[in-house]
Design a protein around this nucleic acid. Structure first.
Lengths: 348, 348
DNA sequence: TTGAAAGCGATACCAT
DNA sequence: ATGGTATCGCTTTCAA
């Protein structure tokens, strides 16, 4: 079937009022005396072309300061080399470290990170909608749960999603997590072994899977060993929250011997409250245990006993998993749990 | 001039082995019974079309779960709505807060953040080269200086660049900074007014403009008031560095009355060294002043006297500036300095 | 107001 | 190994 013949006209006026001329592969081709396809080949990998032509092209490109347009490439090649990362708390120590790890590792694979921040109370689906418009090759979601409708949409559109430090039951989304239940149990064992009997738990967001599991493991193990008396408070993952709750507990006359906090940052708050509000010594008068092992936990001022999350291995694994999903090598959904490691320091 | 008539063939085999069909504006157009252009218009703003047709299109889009392809849009519209952010130390408190501010504010303007991490010792030009391939609308560079060649290339390609918390002399790149010289001077005045006479300075990266200026202002003002005796050490912007240098100073028998540290994180290190290595009380036996006012500075354990950088205003301004450069409303290069504010706390 | 068609700047197929 | 061209999914003239 033949298409009607078309008359081609040149654009007459410059639509974009740009004073600087954009260099494209056509310009390079002209200068190098080759076809545009050849220029494209010279910049790809594993393409058949003479060393000589390649050199010729690269020289011309250099002269013109040509840089291939990744946007145009993405349109045809159907992959952007961009990974979207959605975070709700990007400025907290644990997550900023996580983000840094992801970014650096992805960069080494030639991939870029498109960052999205979910503010408290904002709808994550709306943000995901924007992420998907950019046709990211894959998506990492931390500290937020994805709705099952959205998960389905991602699957439809063919964008692999990985939850990091979270998991969602009922969706077909893979997740990479620390074994929070096990971490909670380990803390329980450690504390009971040290002879503590009056225990408290200060949690973060009570609806997050991390919080639920850390508490679950902790409480389960306590009960298995005959301790059912656990003081539990939840609020959010922050220093202020830890500070306030610890202060409240003590003011209410419920000072425990030891507090297990759902994250290090909460633990630091609790420790400071004990010290500065009541002048209590750690660990003699009140012991504190955290979770994450952020850098500050190892500072001598805090010397926080905590469960270390193997962030580097976790991010490494998450990226590998994402890559294999992008290449469709792996379609099954999995939940990968990494064991946390109890780091014994001075606070308990 | 007429082009030769071409025979158009349909692709026979699916190049990309995708099982899921991609929904495009053509599909929506077909379902809605309108042209593809109309679909495009329905998703743009300020386009002329009937409410009725628009509704029809959106309904069809909804049904098909259509989402416009931002990559394709970028290719034609010549803007990506992506801002590149280059950071060397994204996981430190100050920069992670900065990054968060940028991301959230840009998101509110409908723009995305493409994040690049510069590892120590890595070549920033190579990274910038990648950034530019994505044709970001603008570029924010923090904690790294841009080479003048690269700055020129950015200008050539038409990508506005803003340095944040840095400036580079000799390039035509705009910069948004805290007034570090003034900050240094203010600290000098404050400390002299409090009667300190033995002073030390612990710096970060000695080649960074922040470090140079903070020291410069500090030293200048000391000299103006007749103090020329300042102990100076530089290393890098980190807790460990602050800790180590403070320890060295004291071990060498050069314990000053007060140390001005080039950043809060260095200050916290110095404070901890004094406390845990030598059991010195702050501020009685050794006073410490920082710079930045990160969250931890306000924690009672540290209660760090410091110069507060107005991050929110600075990021706000940087984004406004970038926007106006993107819209070509503003072409002149400027260095905008924000005054820091001395926050008096317990450490000095 | 709407439709038709020309790009945007690459990639990848096909033919030479 | 190289060139020609259809195509990716939009935006934006231009014509009707």
């Amino acid at each position: 079937m033949y298409k009607r013949c078309q008359m081609k006209k040149k654009h007459t006026k410059n639509r974009h009022h740009n004073s600087t001329k954009k260099i494209t592969s056509v310009d390079v081709a002209r200068l190098a005396g080759v076809s545009q396809s050849t220029v494209s080949r010279a910049f790809g990998t594993g393409n058949e072309l003479t060393e000589e032509t390649k050199k010729k092209v690269l020289k011309a490109a250099m002269e013109l300061k040509y840089r291939p347009n990744a946007i145009a490439r993405s349109l045809t090649s159907q992959n952007t080399n961009i990974v979207g990362i959605v975070m709700a708390n990007a400025k907290s120590p644990f997550y900023s470290k996580t983000l840094d790890e992801f970014t650096i590792k992805l960069q080494k694979l030639g991939k870029q990170t498109l960052l999205f921040s979910v503010e408290k109370g904002r709808d994550i689906d709306e943000i995901l909608s924007h992420v998907l418009e950019y046709r990211v090759d894959g998506l990492v979601i931390t500290s937020a749960t994805i709705s099952s409708e959205m998960a389905e949409e991602c699957a439809n559109i063919g964008t692999p999603v990985i939850l990091f430090n979270r998991y969602a039951t009922g969706t077909n989304v893979s997740a990479v997590c620390c074994d929070n239940v096990k971490g909670g149990r380990d803390v329980a064992d450690y504390l009971l072994d040290r002879g503590y009997t009056q225990l408290a738990y200060i949690g973060g967001n009570p609806k997050s899977s991390t919080n639920i599991d850390r508490l679950k493991g902790f409480q389960e193990r306590l009960q298995e060993r005959g301790f059912s008396d656990l003081l539990i408070r939840n609020d959010e993952y922050s220093y202020e929250s830890g500070y306030r709750i610890a202060k409240e507990l003590i003011l209410e006359g419920k000072k425990p011997e030891v507090i297990f906090c759902a994250s290090d940052i909460v633990a630091l708050g609790a420790m400071d409250a004990a010290k500065h509000e009541f002048n209590l010594k750690t660990p003699e008068e009140i012991a504190i245990v955290g979770f994450d092992d952020i850098e500050m936990a190892s500072w001598p001022t805090y010397s926080l006993t905590t469960i270390q999350q193997p962030i580097e291995e976790m991010t490494e694994f998450a990226i590998d998993l994402l890559e294999s999903k992008i290449k469709k090598m792996n379609t099954k959904c999995e939940l990968k749990l990494f064991p946390g490691k109890l780091i014994k320091r001075g606070s308990a």
